[in-house]
């Protein structure tokens, strides 16, 4: 067995961007979700290392953090692609054929809900409702450049949109 060293020091170095967030919230009761949201925004997802680090800084057990993180749809435990496709599966979108749109996206990118393309460009996430029901079916594409929403999708238009994004990626 190789020698095990404490890597706490490394972690605070590794996650130094989170320091201001922890400074503000670590000791404020009830702030776990806020801390996780900020952490995910900075690092894209919640890795085991990151969860352990938050645990050390807040004194909340890792198992509890994991329990909270897995309860809510917003949190991810896996890295995402450069572009996160949030495909709306709300009622209005369902009635207007979002299943067909999903099929078209899956077929075009070769991934299923929750998966990332091999080239790391796209991740597909089905979401409950984006609140743009009058434009159904809708998807939002999130990236470092901001969010872009696309409405009145068709099986073919969604492919064109994705191709366009990939071209500029």
């Amino acid at each position: 067995m190789s020698e095990q060293k404490c890597d706490c020091g490394n972690r605070s170095q590794q996650f130094k961007e989170l320091a201001p967030v922890l400074k503000e919230y670590a000791k404020v009761p009830g702030s776990l979700i806020t801390i996780l949201q900020n952490a995910q925004e900075i690092y894209g997802y919640l890795s085991p290392d990151l969860i352990n680090y938050i645990s050390e800084e807040t004194g909340i057990r890792p198992a509890k953090i994991y329990g909270v993180a897995t309860f809510y749809a917003q949190f991810r435990m896996e890295p995402v692609g450069k572009y996160l496709i949030m495909l709306c599966k709300g009622t209005a979108c369902h009635v207007n054929g979002s299943d067909m749109i999903e099929e078209s996206v899956c077929e075009h990118l070769g991934i299923q809900d929750g998966e990332t393309t091999e080239d790391g460009i796209f991740t597909l996430n089905n979401v409950a409702c984006l609140g743009c029901c009058s434009l159904a079916p809708v998807m939002m594409v999130q990236s470092a450049d901001g969010d872009e929403t696309y409405g009145n999708l068709t099986k073919d238009s969604v492919k064109d949109i994705l191709d366009e994004i990939r071209k500029n990626a």
């Binding site: 979700i33 909270v68 309860f71 809510y72 979401v127």
Partner: peptide
């Protein structure tokens, strides 16, 4: 306080649990 995506949090006691940073 920003929610994190859970329909059940519309129920008031669940909402309070979520406000407190719990499941």
């Amino acid at each position: 306080k920003a929610g994190a995506g859970a329909f059940v949090c519309g129920e008031e006691t669940a909402l309070i649990a979520s406000l407190e940073g719990e499941r």
